[in-house]
Amino acid sequence: MKVLLVEDEQKIADFVCSGLAARGAVVTHCADGNAGFEAARCGGYDAIVLDLMLPGRDGLSVLSGLRGAGVHTPVILLTARNELGDRIEGLNLGADDYMAKPFFVEELHARLLALRRRLNGERQNRLQAGGYTLDRLSRQVGRAGDSVELTAREHALLALLMRAPGQVSTRSQILEHVWGYDFDPSTNVVDVCVKRLRAKLAGLAGTGEGATPLESPIESVRGAGYRFRAD
C-alpha cells in the first residue's frame, strides 16, 4: 500500500512513517501543504494522511483543492486544533475519515486498511487465528466444530484482536475502535468485555476445562492492553 503523509511535525512524521513501514506500507512524507498538494495531485497513492495545520497551505485547503482537481484518493485527516469544527468541515469537503491527535499508528493502519477494503468493495468475512474462526456475518466464533454467538461489542473486540495476532491493543485503541469512543468513558468497560469474551471462548470445545485467563487466547499485557495469542 502506498501512503502519502503530509505532516509538518518531523517527530510525528518519523514514528508514523516507521510505524506504517513496519506494517508493510510504503510511505512518502511531505512537510508542507504545497508540496503535499503537488505530490497528491500527481497521483499514484492508495491513501493520503493529511494533517490540518500545515505551513504553506493548510490541510482543508489542500483537501478541497484535490477534490476540486478531481483527485479522489482516500484521505484521512489528522486533527488537533478546534477538532470538531475541522472534522465536520473536512468530512464535508470529501475526507473519508479523520483521526484526532493523539492517535495510534496501529489504529491509523487499521483505518487505512479498512478504507482500501471499502474502496475495493471487499470485506473480510472470516478471521482466523490460533485455531479460532470468527464469522463476521453471523457473529459467531468457532473452534473444532463448536461455536458460540457473540454480542456486537464482543464480536467487534474479538475481530480487532484477531486481525493482528500478537499485537497489543491498548484500552484507548479498543475503546475507539469497538465502542467508537474517542474519549475516556470513565468505566472499565473494556476489561469487563474482555472477561466475558474469555468466558465464552473458554466454553468452546477444544479448550481445556476450567481454563484460566492465563491460558485464554486473549492475553493481558499487564496494566492496559490485550492481544490475541499469536501461536
Partner: peptide, 24 residues
Amino acid sequence: SADAAHELKTPLTILQGRLEQALH
C-alpha cells in the same frame, strides 16, 4: 484554550507514537 490544546496535542501525539513504537 484552542492554542493550548493544539500545543498540548503535538507533544502528546509524539509521546504516544513513540511509546507505541517502543511497545511494538
